[in-house]
Simulated assay, not measured.
Amino acid sequence: MAPTVFRSGQFRFFFFSREEPRIHVHVAHPDGEAKFWLTPTVHLATSMGLSSMQIREAQALIETRLEEIQHAWHSHFGA
């Protein structure tokens, strides 16, 4: 199961259920995908196929909607 948190343009931001407990979000795009850690600060964990510009755009979207993502994480996985 991979619940979607939100979509923006061609980006989809989501979680994988039953994955590691450290808070993070996955990003899917037709060109590739990435994973970002959310703590202690938002930073790229892995990326495949995305350009530097797409990674920066995804990170900016995450930073703008960080509280929403964290709330969705805690609602899905529990505190």
Score class of each variant (00 low, 15 high):
Q59Y: 13
H76V: 07
F13M: 07
A60Y: 03
M1L: 14
L44K: 09
E68Q: 04
A34R: 03
S17C: 12
V25G: 06
V5C: 00
T46V: 04
R7N: 01
S8K: 09
G49C: 12
A60G: 04
A45N: 11
I62R: 05
L50S: 01
L66G: 14
R22Y: 15
W37D: 05
A34V: 07
R56Q: 12
A28V: 10
E20Q: 11
W37H: 08
R7T: 03
L61M: 07
E68V: 11
H29R: 06
V27Y: 06
E63G: 15
F6C: 08
R18K: 11
Q70M: 12
V25A: 03
E67W: 11
T39P: 00
F16D: 12
F16E: 13
F11R: 07
H29G: 00
T46C: 08
H26L: 15
M1D: 01
V42Q: 04
F11V: 00
P30K: 11
E19T: 03
R7K: 10
H71E: 10
I55G: 00
F6V: 07
L38W: 04
F13T: 01
V27G: 13
V42P: 05
H24S: 10
H71Y: 06
M53R: 03
F14M: 14
H29C: 02
G49V: 08
A45K: 08
G9H: 00
G32A: 06
E19M: 14
Q10G: 02
A2W: 14
L66R: 09
L44Y: 02
M53W: 06
G49S: 01
R22E: 05
E33Q: 01
Q10L: 06
L50M: 03
F11A: 00
S51C: 02
